[in-house]
Write a protein that binds this DNA or RNA. Structure first.
Lengths: 120, 120
DNA sequence: TCTATATTTCAACAGTTGTTGAGTAATTGA
DNA sequence: TCAATTACTCAACAACTGTTGAAATATAGA
């Protein structure tokens, strides 16, 4: 994964409406949700929603499929995982302190920082 | 962790110079690196660097300590882990497909998506 | 074809972000 | 105290981002 794609993804996620869109889509099945339903759930105008869906799609975080009049959106889990994998492994040096906190293992282990090693 | 802090952190990370600063600091010891050395390593002007260090510090991703004339910066690993923990768990529904890709476990498991469950 | 529905595009505007270079503040050692 | 070093702040400017409402596009069904 290239850094420019990671930057685009982080930039896309760094907006409250777009993070809500991600949160809304993650609880849906593989069919995702059509634009109108997302707009209704989040109380957004059609054009505002379209703007943010475009941003997330351009960043590679969403994929869309037209079904008749509707366009269905769903998360691209592979891309999302790859983005955070890049940040955690290639930018943060795969540090166990970060990984454990990220996976919420920190309360399971001792506080010495000598917990699990980073996989890979 | 509040969503507003997560948004601030993602926004701070979504810049190539700032991601390079993070990458530079993650390979340093607990003392971190002073501003002048970061500027030299990355070829930045003092004021440009100061602008970006302020952004990262305001977002809670760096901590600084003055040592004489110099100011040393280091990553706040807890905060970084908490930010990505929030996104992966509270925004992406703790999905194994994302987690495995993020931890780069995807090449170890089968491709069926039935791999490890999310911890917690 | 005509109408209704679903979504996207566009232009205008306001607000935010990033860069530059000059100036300022804090600290050290002569 | 003075000069040198280190880092920060500020103003000006350009570029980018997000919001709004109107218009355009695509599809479905009568």
């Amino acid at each position: 994964m290239e850094q420019s794609r990671v930057l685009a993804a982080l930039s896309a996620l760094a907006h409250d409406v777009r993070l809500e869109i991600v949160r809304t889509l993650c609880c849906q099945g593989p069919d995702g949700l059509c634009a109108g339903k997302i707009a209704h759930q989040l109380g957004l105008s059609a054009s505002a929603l379209s703007f943010h869906l475009s941003a997330l799609t351009a960043a590679g975080l969403l994929v869309s499929t037209r079904q008749g009049r509707q366009v269905h959106y769903r998360l691209d889990n592979d891309q999302i995982g790859a983005v955070f994998g890049f940040v955690l492994n290639d930018c943060c040096g795969a540090q166990p302190a970060i990984r454990d906190r990220c996976l919420r293992l920190d309360h399971l282990d001792d506080q010495s920082g000598k917990s699990n090693t980073w996989p890979g």
